[in-house]
Design a protein around this nucleic acid. Structure first.
Lengths: 107, 107
DNA sequence: GCACTATTTGGCAATATAGCCAAATAGCCA
DNA sequence: TGGCTATTTGGCTATATTGCCAAATAGTGC
């Protein structure tokens, strides 16, 4: 059932692993507005350049983003565009949970 | 930019963290067909019952699934139904990558 | 109550991830 | 070439996750 095509599930989970970090989530949402160089993302995140670079390589290896070098800078942009649809789904569910907790409290 | 609403991104990333494991991914897909008890999922996964139980609690805490106790058994079912749409997106992207690698090789 | 089954929880060792610093690499310009 | 900037890579420590076993909890039926 599971063990026979475990690698199949491992490949798929790589994408979710890539999105499973606040900094990487932020970057993907930022890239939704257009390509950004590493330096721009670094400034926005307030993390070390090397840390940001490693986060981006995680997203790249998962196939979520792609990169292009132009001069000194490396520009990243979204490749797996459909992941943007995830965020509204997740947000909606989180909002519903909050609403439900509130109505439980006030009941 | 990021540091000011870091907790916001942390909450969202919880959902992706929950999906970022092959066993949990398998369970969510299985639950798409209907509710399952822990024992059924344990049999399919070939993991220790305690391990499966912990995986399920991760999914529950993230709001992805919900549980209901009936007699001795605890039945889990999908709560965040929209996550099912993720899988086709991810699969489609992975397929495209494979196709692209193939065409690069044969070119 | 006792015995039995299903599930959860605590604890531990092995492994993976995140962040920083330092060093390496790559491209620009003089 | 050398100096400068942007990015990546290696290495390290701190922290988080995974999976097992053992023990605790909860529900059933005698």
């Amino acid at each position: 059932m599971f063990k026979t095509n475990r690698t199949h599930y491992e490949k798929r989970s790589q994408v979710f692993k890539a999105l499973a970090h606040p900094a990487r989530l932020f970057m993907v949402e930022e890239l939704a507005s257009g390509e950004r160089c590493v330096c721009e993302l670094t400034a926005m995140l307030g993390l070390d350049t090397s840390t940001v670079s490693k986060h981006l390589s995680v997203l790249k290896n998962a196939g979520v983003v792609s990169d292009e070098k132009r001069g000194l800078m490396v520009y990243y942009s979204i490749k797996m565009t459909c992941v943007l649809g995830f965020f509204s789904c997740v947000q909606k569910s989180l909002d519903e949970d909050v609403r439900q907790q509130f109505s439980t409290l006030s009941a």
